[in-house]
Design a protein around this nucleic acid. Structure first.
Lengths: 135, 135
DNA sequence: CGTATTGTATGAGTGTATGCATACACAGGA
DNA sequence: TCCTGTGTATGCATACACTCATACAATACG
């Protein structure tokens, strides 16, 4: 399976004050959102993750544990960890409000990073379109 | 000055495992990126922040300390904290690569939040255009 | 059944984050 | 000069995060 390796190579643990287990948690959730991890997929083994990033097994377990409590994955002893069904997409007004909130946040982040928001928006559109093609 | 109050009302400290000082640091940087905090502006007093969010003065200091080390603010004893000059915007290839990176990140975040990336991109464009108008 | 794999669990030790309290140092204004 | 507001600093206590080491339990497979 290439999935695990692709996944692990796409994950970065930084030393920026954010707890490792939080970084893992967020990046796995992000991978699910991006479609890199699909429902039913086997997650990398806790030990694989621990070895790959040179962190403790318990730290990985902490992240997986939270993912399970969030309903994002299912942990099966002796077999492995698997991606659960994703939450349904938002609808109507909720969706619009959430998009608005996200847009403002993205705008601020872009400004802080010195990135032109118009360029960013066009790239988002392009990437989204490219992803639609595949499906 | 209303700025401080507006700023503080726009900041949210959550209990999600991310250290408080990191949350403060990131949100102040974001406020600078969004233009809510401009170069030369006085930052909220450490004590103001501590009281507003009911956190310890040392915790606020930790955040301000990192902001100073990052060159984002200047701390002057007896007077207060002030926003420093912003980093120059990126140019050329660097800008493009950074935009690409940001776009992918945003796309994944949007997917995880159940937000349509195309809607998000259009909102970003609209907000950016609205901000241009003002200047 | 025996072995390897994978998840689950515990304890010791170290470092960090946070809160609380108490100061000190410097700037500005009454 | 005195007072107030600001940043700076310390000690103490508690809780958490992380690592390391060492297991145990359940599953898969030959």
């Amino acid at each position: 399976m290439h999935t695990q390796e692709q996944l692990l190579s796409g994950i970065r643990i930084e030393d920026n004050g954010v707890p490792i287990y939080v970084q893992l948690r967020e990046q796995f959730l992000r991978a699910m959102g991006a479609g890199v991890l699909k429902p039913g997929d086997q997650m990398p083994t806790m030990r694989q993750v621990a070895v790959a990033f040179r962190i403790d097994l318990n730290t990985v377990r902490h992240a997986y544990d939270e993912l399970e409590r969030a309903g994002a994955v299912v942990l099966i002893r002796g077999r492995g960890s698997f991606v659960a069904e994703p939450p349904a997409a938002l609808q109507g007004a909720d969706h619009d409000a959430e998009a608005e909130r996200l847009a403002r946040q993205v705008l601020a982040t872009a400004a802080a990073a010195g990135v032109d928001p118009l360029v960013l928006a066009s790239k988002i559109t392009a990437l989204a379109a490219a992803k639609e093609e595949v499906q």
